[in-house]
């Protein structure tokens, strides 16, 4: 039953909170090594509850529900019987608000903390720190105090602290909330670097333009269930799913679908597809006052 490339396997996971709210209502999901997964869905659909099961922050509340995580040594462990710190080196979790997890006075100490706890060789720590900072676009900021970083930079620092521990899987809850476009891209690019090394990224996001551009797989949640699971193109083309989850694909995809050019996800795709049509349309257009 165990998939060789699976890093996280969930079987029939339910989660009911103390107050009686059933946030997950039986989820089966396998995340493979090297995937870039985006979990989408309305507020309250169970996205964060799902993601917190990946590293044992939450555990299934039903007897027969199980989450297994494959550690670096190749062993697959059940999160229910495993202490949190035994999963921390495999699955890094970055909270929606980075300030909940940043607590040192310098970026260097912040990044050293995790590896040190895991017994890393102290002589390699400096290299780990500088390399990780570079990966998230904060090169040379070792001695900066995190409180002087912008919110987006602190988000990247929080991601870096998961990367510094050598986590195979990084789970990030709404990485771009409140960020402008340029900063959102830097954050996603940090994760894309991690992904390009053959590692696994899971994000929770409402930003469908970024999901379309970066994710290889989309998991759409609704009322504690997985409603759809596939490539961004597959999920964004299921009208029923979009209506049920209230998800709006990126404008480029919506426009392309409306004008009969399906399969388009990004601005670049749309421009290419629309150019093809316009170039074959009868009247050539002359245009002088171009926009610069």
């Amino acid at each position: 039953m165990s998939n060789a490339d699976a890093v996280i396997e969930m079987d029939n996971v339910e989660h009911t909170y103390g107050g009686g709210t059933k946030a997950l209502a039986g989820v089966d999901l396998t995340v493979g090594r090297g995937e870039f997964v985006a979990v989408i869905g309305r507020n309250g659909s169970g996205k964060t509850t799902l993601a917190k099961h990946f590293n044992g922050l939450l555990r299934p509340t039903n007897q027969d529900g199980a989450v297994r995580v494959r550690r670096a040594d190749g062993r697959s462990v059940d999160t229910r019987g495993t202490r949190l710190h035994h999963l921390a080196a495999t699955v890094g979790y970055v909270f929606q608000n980075p300030d909940r997890q940043i607590f040192h006075d310098t970026c260097r100490e912040e990044l050293e903390y995790g590896p040190r706890n895991l017994g890393a060789d102290p002589t390699t720590l400096a290299d780990t720190v500088s390399q990780t900072l570079e990966l998230v676009g904060l090169e040379g900021r070792e001695e900066a105090n995190p409180i002087h970083l912008s919110r987006g930079e602190r988000q990247r620092l929080a991601i870096a602290s998961a990367l510094a521990m050598g986590c195979d899987v990084v789970v990030v809850d709404e990485p771009t909330t409140g960020q402008d476009r340029a900063e959102s891209r830097k954050i996603l690019d940090s994760l894309a670097h991690h992904h390009a090394q053959g590692r696994t990224v899971v994000i929770i996001s409402h930003d469908m333009a970024l999901v379309a551009e970066y994710a290889t797989r989309v998991v759409a949640m609704r009322r504690g269930h997985v409603l759809a699971d596939g490539t961004p193109a597959e999920v964004f083309s299921q009208r029923e799913v979009l209506r049920e989850t209230n998800i709006r694909p990126p404008q480029a995809a919506v426009l392309a679908a409306e004008i009969g050019l399906p399969g388009v996800l990004t601005v670049d795709h749309a421009v290419d597809a629309m150019r093809d049509v316009l170039q074959h349309t009868a009247t050539p257009v002359s245009h002088d006052d171009k926009v610069h």
């Binding site: 601005v267 150019r275 002359s286 245009h287």
Partner: peptide, 13 residues
Amino acid sequence: DIALRLREEGLWD
């Protein structure tokens, strides 16, 4: 964005 890029190419009048 799409329209402005196509307009640069003289295709969006």
